[in-house]
């Protein structure tokens, strides 16, 4: 069985700078991690690898330094890593990102694609379902459990909703989006770290993909950032710097005035 896990390198702080010209995020200089939902998906893939002998490929799109996230994935136990890195992929919204990832997936052999539900820097939860649509395969999003059926032809997924869950059976090939709570990702092994730093990360550029250049990058993105700004504040209320007892008294007084208590 072949599994491809799509991972995104995300800033691990909330420290953010934006490019004043394009209005997009400047990623340089911010410490980065594997996006938590993606890491949950990677762990789920590695569990399947142990159980049924799957081959796990990690796929990412990003700047050259996103190779660090892929090396971490290799050190955890992934077999192969591919980075889609080309200035022409840059500035992509979710539509163009998913179109680029789908083009790479068309070049690979796989039975199952796992994406994280959403990335912590954008929180859109769009790329997984959009990749599935571009590839024309079924999707199961918000997965909190994942197992392979005995015949190896379908996965059974616990799919979470606000008010309960469904247990569904999806025929392979399909795409699943994973929640970080579905497991506790393993640490990198010492030998794995050593090997991962020597490992080859395949870099694919636009020329390596069979994709219409009109469907990638900023140019292939239906949406544009018109403006971005730090949020304005409403007029702040009164602030008192007092001891806790006095603070409690002031709060109660205010709540009484407003008939809240």
């Amino acid at each position: 069985m072949n599994i491809v896990v799509c991972v995104k390198q995300v800033p691990d702080t909330t420290e953010v700078r934006i490019d004043p010209v394009t209005g997009t995020l400047v990623r340089e200089g911010i410490p980065s991690i594997i996006n938590p939902d993606d890491k949950g998906g990677l762990e789920a893939a590695l569990v399947l690898k142990e159980k049924v002998g799957a081959r796990v490929t990690v796929l990412s799109m990003g700047p050259p330094q996103a190779d660090l996230a892929l090396r971490e994935a290799l050190a955890m136990g992934a077999d192969e890593a591919i980075l889609l890195s080309d200035a022409r992929f840059g500035g992509a919204d979710t539509w163009a990102t998913s179109s680029t990832l789908a083009a790479a997936l068309r070049k690979l052999e796989w039975d199952l694609v796992i994406c994280g539900r959403q990335a912590i820097d954008g929180d859109t939860a769009q790329v997984g379902p959009q990749v599935a649509e571009h590839l024309g395969v079924p999707q199961v999003s918000y997965a909190s459990e994942l197992s392979l059926e005995a015949d190896g032809k379908a996965v059974v997924v616990k799919r979470v909703f606000e008010d309960g869950y469904q247990r569904v059976r999806a025929k392979l090939p399909c795409l699943v989006t994973a929640l970080k709570d579905m497991n506790t990702p393993r640490y990198m092994s010492v030998a794995g770290v050593f090997d991962a730093y020597k490992a080859e990360i395949k870099i694919w550029k636009l020329e390596d993909l069979d994709v219409d250049p009109a469907n990638i990058g900023l140019k292939g993105s239906p949406t544009r950032v018109k403006k971005s700004y730090t949020k304005g504040t409403k007029s702040a209320g009164k602030v008192y710097e007092v001891d806790p007892k006095e603070g409690a008294r002031i709060i109660v007084e205010n709540l009484k005035e407003r008939f809240i208590i």
């Binding site: 539509w95 379902p129 649509e133």
Partner: peptide, 23 residues
């Protein structure tokens, strides 16, 4: 932007080739 809407809307936007802005 419920768990249903966040599953459905991106699939629809990919199919009709249009942009989708979340939340």
């Amino acid at each position: 932007a419920t768990t249903i809407g966040r599953d459905l809307a991106p699939r629809v936007s990919a199919r009709v080739k249009t942009g989708l802005t979340a939340d």
